[in-house]
Each structure stands twice: as structure tokens, then as C-alpha cells.
Simulated assay, not measured.
Amino acid sequence: MKYVPRVALFLGIPALLFLLPWWLLVYCTSSGPLLWAGSAVFLLGFVCLPAGLLLGHGPRQSDAAVIVGDTLLGAVWVLFSWSVIGAVVRAGLTVAGVDDPARSRLVAVGVLAVWAALLVWGTVEARRVPRVRTVEVTIPGLGRGLDGLRAVVITDTHFAALDRLRWSRRVVEVVNAQRPDIVCHAGDLADGPVARRRAQVEPLGKVEAGLGRFYITGNHEYFGDALGWIECLTALGWRPLRNQHEIVERGGDRLVIAGIDDPTGVALDGHGPDLPAALAGAPDVPVVLLAHQPKQISAAVEAGVALQISGHTHGGQIWPFHYLVRLDQPVVAGLSRHGERTQLYTSRGTGFWGPALRVFAPSEITVLVLRAPTP
């Protein structure tokens, strides 16, 4: 009985996602054989979605099921979102005196056209090499020797069932073209075990950064093979920061680069965020903190961190999901200020999770140019 609420939620959400589009696109526009055929298509989708997610993301870890389930999830989410808008438009047409069948058919054609266009565009956006976004961040107390330091941020690469080896190589080329002083991966490296995903990750070993390459765990590492991925990145020449810090020095000035585990790490013995441990013994210089989730900013503010770099949100990834992300995280994307001296940069992510779609939430490779205050 304790699993009944979970099962109800697992089936109830897909039912809602399919029910509204079915009503708007099938029930209101057709009858007879067309009604039955359209209903059968929606019923098949409703069955395949939870089955694909369970077989793909559950204990069996089937890559084929992941692709089916995730693709259906993205497609029906976009269809549901625009069906909500279509229902509002339909109500407006009713008030305006437009009668059926013209009213229902006009709305259905409009929703389907927008849906198809967004699926094509969203797929291209997800699979493309991310655009480079350059942001200058003034760091109080930063020495002149470190002024202009270029920190390139990648995060949420989520190497998974879809083989993105060529994409991975192109990302590395773009990162190196930015002439980074340091490169940071802010977590959610891959979904699945090292044995399956290592080939896609190995190009990261060719990232070039004169002052260091740093990596922290995200929540998805702890859903799979966290220890394996930490070992893998170490072997590729990256420095995992597990509640630890390193000191970066240039021109006689120093900067602390610290990293903490994702909160989901508490499920694994010896893991979990510990900011005091990460900063233990650090000199009195500005601190740049890598923390996967933006909501970890509260601890950073208390510790007087100058800049926290996070990912996790994907900028919402598929509109309008960012409204739901905002319920859990203080920031969805971009540079924000918290407390008197702490700034937070939240990346929209370099890859994607689940559906190979990005709708109104483009991916990014971020160049944070650190600036000393103007005298």
C-alpha cells in the first residue's frame, strides 16, 4: 500500500498530459472511426510513456527504452503546454461567436502546427554545439594580477543513451578556443555507468586550461555511478573538488576555487555538501565556489563566498517548465546577487537531460571574465 501514492502519481501525470490534448485535438474535432483512431493513438502514447521511463530510468537501464520514453515525454509536454493555450483561444473564439466545427478545427490546426514547429526547432537547439555566452563579473577584493581571468563553465552535459561523441569533441574545441585560464564542470556529467558513457566523456581530457580544470558532482552522478565518474575525470586530468579547495595564483595574487558535493550525495557514505570543510585552511582571499544547485547559495552567503557557479536548472529546458523549476530554485539562469557580497551565476547547461529538446532555453558554454574592482 505504501507504493500506491507513487504509482498514482507516476500514472496520473501522464494521464493529465495526454488527456487535455486528446480532448482538444480528437474529441472536439472528430467522430466515428476518426475519433476511435485518434483515441487509440493517445492511449498508446499514454501506455508507452511510463513504460519507457520505467524501463529506461529504472533498474533495467535500457537505452532503447530511455530514448522512447524521453522522446514521448518531451513531445507530450510541448503538446500539453500549447493545448492549454489552445483551450484558452477556443474559449475566446466561443465568446466571439465562432461556432463548431470551424472553431475546434481552427484551434486544433494551430496547436498542431506550433507543436510540430517547436519539436523541429527544439531538437536542433538541443543537438547543436552551444553558443558561447561571455559575462564579466566584478569580484570585490580580487587582485590586479587576476583581473581578466577567464573561467569557462560547462555543466549538465548529461552524456546518456543518445551517442554524442562528435558533439563532445566539438564542445571541447569551442572551450579551448576561448583561451580559458580555468575550466569548471559544475556537475551532472553523465547518466549511466562509466562503462557505457566513457567514450562520450573522454574528449574532456583534451580541455586546455593553464590554471586548472575542476569538477564537482551533480545530483545525477548520485543516481548512477558517482565514484566511477570521479575516478574517470581524475584519470582524464581534472581535479574533482569534493568539499575541497584549490588556490589559483597569477601575478602574485591568489583566488580560492572551492567545490562541494550535491545534496543528493548524502545517500552515499562520506558524501554530501560540507562548505566549512571545503574552505578549511583557505587564505583570506576571494572564493569562487562550485555548487551544482543554485539553492546552495544560502550556505555560500553565510560563508562570504564571492561567486557561486551552478547549473542544474537547464534554464527550464522546455518552456514553460522554468516556472516549475522556480518553485524549487531561487534562480533559473543568469547572474544574480545574494546578500551583501555574494553573486551567483546559474548556467542554462551545456547539454540536455531526457528529451532531446530545448525550447526557449538555449544551451550555453559560459565564459566568466573575473574583474578586479575599479580603483
Rank of each mutant, 00 (worst) to 15 (best):
A87F: 13
V124N: 00
A278C: 07
T138D: 09
A161D: 07
V359E: 06
G110Q: 12
G141P: 11
A235Y: 00
V137I: 12
L79D: 12
Q317L: 13
G52R: 13
A258C: 11
R164L: 14
L204W: 15
L307R: 03
S83N: 11
R131C: 00
L335I: 02
V26Y: 08
T346M: 06
E136V: 01
H312N: 11
R326I: 00
P50H: 02
R170F: 00
W22K: 02
D274K: 03
R128W: 01
Y345A: 04
L227Q: 12
V84L: 15
L49N: 10
D63A: 15
V207F: 03
L49K: 11
V248P: 04
V137L: 11
L344G: 05
G32T: 12
V76P: 06
V174I: 13
F42N: 01
T346C: 14
S310I: 02
A75K: 01
L11C: 11
S363T: 01
P276T: 06
L368G: 04
L54G: 07
G56Y: 11
P5L: 12
Q329F: 03
R103A: 14
D63M: 07
G205F: 04
R337I: 07
D284L: 07
Y3G: 00
G265P: 01
A209Y: 08
D274V: 02
R60P: 00
V124S: 01
T29S: 10
R337D: 14
P5G: 09
I260L: 05
P59R: 15
E202Q: 14
Y222Q: 04
Q308D: 08
E302G: 06
L35V: 06
Q178I: 00
D147Q: 04
P273E: 04
I85T: 12
I216T: 08
R128G: 02
P320T: 11
D99A: 15
R133G: 00
R133T: 14
A280H: 11
D262F: 07
V98I: 15
A51W: 14
A277V: 03
A51P: 06
G148Q: 08
L357G: 06
P50L: 01
G311E: 12
G315E: 11
A190P: 07
